[in-house]
Design a protein around this nucleic acid. Structure first.
Lengths: 152, 152
DNA sequence: TCAAATAGTTAGATTAGTATAAAATTTTTA
DNA sequence: TAAAAATTTTATACTAATCTAACTATTTGA
């Protein structure tokens, strides 16, 4: 009956709910608005599932939703969505561009890890990646020999 | 009623079930055997939860369990448990020893990420860590300046 | 050696997240 | 502009994983 629950620490959401926020942000960037149907399609779930989730997110101030209308992010929702997207980005780049994990796998894994890793860790991964690019793997040759070493 | 389910691809388990295997392996290493009660304590769940999980794992050949007796890993179960432990280890060391994330957080995050990341990625993280230790961050000074850079 | 304490099991309830079926609303279009 | 199509909502059911309560089996120790 009660489907979603507020979590400790406050402003922290389940992986599932974070995915809804992330998807809404993505859709709004792509097409200016997000409808239940689009969210369902993007997440590969059915619209009643989206409805339930949106209801909870609205009640807890992450989104605004008028019946039968568009879904929009509040400031709180937008902030959280951006955070998750940022984590995804950093993890994807680390896996794909530095470790040469293929795009599909890198994306899948980033999609899951983004809900388990904290901002501190992910920021440090970003910094490490930057450092290595800048000072250790400057040219094509270095990068290729890294790829080689990682795959041997 | 039906509590756990076989997953695609075969031999792949939910995070929860992987944790049971991992815990059994850990207990067997520590005290030669694993009982329902120990597993429950280690995972912070109640014994009926362990019972349900063990029943499923036994039916699917990951563990052996005679009623009221000890729980043991099959070859399949041991293999999977070691794999998860290995992932945990690599992730923990990467976060704590290279990125200087504090032990508690590093452990927590490793505990979650270990179920989301594939062997390929985790092996590459291990290799990267090794490479950096060996060739780029050799002495105490290098390590400290890395710490500094990551935390600034 | 048998009563208490401990451990394991079974049955049934609960929760988060999802799905199906059908009703309500909105949009499209003939 | 009214009927058809599409979308959203509601009600209900299911699944994975957990829990509580009550029961059964095993171990311990007076």
């Amino acid at each position: 009956m009660a489907k979603f629950k507020k979590r400790e620490p406050l402003n922290s959401l389940s992986a599932s709910l974070e995915n809804y926020l992330e998807t809404i942000a993505m859709l709004k960037k792509e097409k200016e608005y997000a409808r239940i149907r689009d969210i369902a399609k993007a997440l590969n779930v059915k619209s009643p599932s989206v409805n339930t989730a949106i209801k909870f997110l609205a009640k807890n101030n992450f989104v605004i939703h008028e019946k039968y209308g568009y879904v929009d992010l509040t400031y709180l929702g937008k902030t959280l969505a951006l955070e998750v997207q940022k984590k995804h980005d950093i993890l994807y780049n680390f896996l794909n561009k530095l470790l040469f994990v293929n795009n599909k796998v890198a994306n899948q894994e980033a999609c899951e890890i983004e809900h388990s890793i904290g901002l501190e860790s992910v920021r440090k991964i970003e910094k490490l990646h930057l450092l290595l690019k800048k000072y250790f793997f400057k040219n094509e040759e270095d990068v290729l020999s890294l790829k080689n070493y990682l795959e041997e």
